[in-house]
Design a protein around this nucleic acid. Sequence first.
DNA 1: TTGTCACTATACCGGTCGGTATACTGCAAT
DNA 2: ATTGCAGTATACCGACCGGTATAGTGACAA
Lengths: 203, 203
Amino acid sequence: MSLNLQEKILQAASELFYSQGIRATGVDAIVKAANTTKMSLYKYFSSKDDLVIAFLRKRDEDFRVWFVDQVNGKADTPKAKLLAIFDVIGEWMAVPEFRGCAFINAAAEFPLEGNPVHQVSAEFYDHFRSFIADLAEQYGSKSPKNLALQLSLLVEGAIVSEQMKRHSGSAEQAKQAAIILIEGSLGDIPDTTLLTDNSGEEQ
Amino acid sequence: MSLNLQEKILQAASELFYSQGIRATGVDAIVKAANTTKMSLYKYFSSKDDLVIAFLRKRDEDFRVWFVDQVNGKADTPKAKLLAIFDVIGEWMAVPEFRGCAFINAAAEFPLEGNPVHQVSAEFYDHFRSFIADLAEQYGSKSPKNLALQLSLLVEGAIVSEQMKRHSGSAEQAKQAAIILIEGSLGDIPDTTLLTDNSGEEQ
DNA sequence: TTGTCACTATACCGGTCGGTATACTGCAAT
DNA sequence: ATTGCAGTATACCGACCGGTATAGTGACAA
C-alpha cells in the first residue's frame, strides 16, 4: 500500500516493461501510467536506462524472495524442494499476465554482453543456479553444480517454451525430466562426466 | 553469390535484426547496410513489419535445412542423431556472432501472442519439435512426443543460458542430461506419466 | 508570513522513427 | 529514338523518442 512517488513510478514502469517490452515502452507512457510528470520521473531516475536497471534489480530481489518462499512452502526435503521448483514455475506460468522471464526478455532486447541491462539479467541466473546448487548439495547429488545447471536449463527452456505457446505442458514435462535427472544424480549411476567424449573438465 | 536487390536488402536486414535486435534496427540503418535507398526497400517490402516477417520466415527455412543437414552429417542411427543435436547447437553457440535464438528473441521483443512476429516464431519450434519427435519415434522411445518436448526444453534452455553468459558449458550439460533422458525413454523404465501426481493426460 | 520543498503543468529541444513524394539516372527492349 | 522500368537521390511528412527549461501549485515549518 501507500507507495511513495518513486516507488509508484518504478512499479508503473515495471509493469509496462514486463508486459510490453522495454524498448516498446516510452517514458511518456510510464509517466501517464504512474499519474505523474516527466519532471518527477527524472528527479528520481537520471535516465530511462537508470529506470530499466532499477526495474531489473528490484525484480531480481522480489522474484527470488517470492520463489524461495514458494518452494520452501511446498516441500521440506531437499529432493522435494528440487521438484517443487517445477510446480512453482508451472503455477507462475499459468497466470494470464505471464509474459516469460523478464531477464531473458531483457537480455534478448539488449543482446550485447557488455550492456549493463544484459549483465544485470545474467546475474539473476547466477543467483538462481546457486539456489538450485545448494539444494542439490543438500540432497546428496554427486555433482551438484552439474545437476543445478541441468535443472536450470529445463526451467529456462520451459519458460521460453511457454512464452512462445501457452499451455503446451512445458512445466510438466520439465518436471518429468527433472525427476529422472535428480534420481540419476544420486550415486547408483556413474558420474555423468564419465559419459562425455571429451572428459575431465568438470569443476 | 550475386544476390538481387531484394535478397540483398533482406540479408542486410537479417544480420542487423539478429545482431542488434529488431526494434533497435531502423530502416535507415538497413538501407545503408544494403547500399540502397528507402524507396527500393519499400518497393519490395510493404512495411518494416513485412520485412521482419520475411526475415523470420527465411531464417526458419534456412536454419532448419542447415540444422537437419548438420545432424544427419554427424550421425547415422536415430539415437546418435538425437545426441548429435547437442553437438550441433554446441558448435553453433561457439561462433562469435552467436546472439541466441532469433525466434526466442523476436518473441521476447513482441510479447503478445497474437502478434504475427510472435506467431511465426512459435511455428519454428513446432517444426523443430516435430523433427526431434520423428527421431525419437525411430529410436523407439516409449513416448516420442514427451521425449521430444523434454529435449527441446534442454536445447532452448542451453541457447538462452549461453546467450546470457557465454562459455558456461550449457551445451555439454544439456547433452549429459539428454543422454540420461534418451536412455531412460526406451522401455526398461516405467513411462514417465506414471510418475506424475496428476496422471493420464498424455497424447 | 515567508521560505522551502515535493510535485505539477506545459512547452520545448534536437533527433530519430516509419513511410512517402518527386525528380532523376541509366539501361534494355521495341 | 522512344518508352519503360529498376534503381537512385533527396527532401519531406507527422509522430514519437529521451530529456530539459520554466513557471506555478499547495502544504508544511519557522
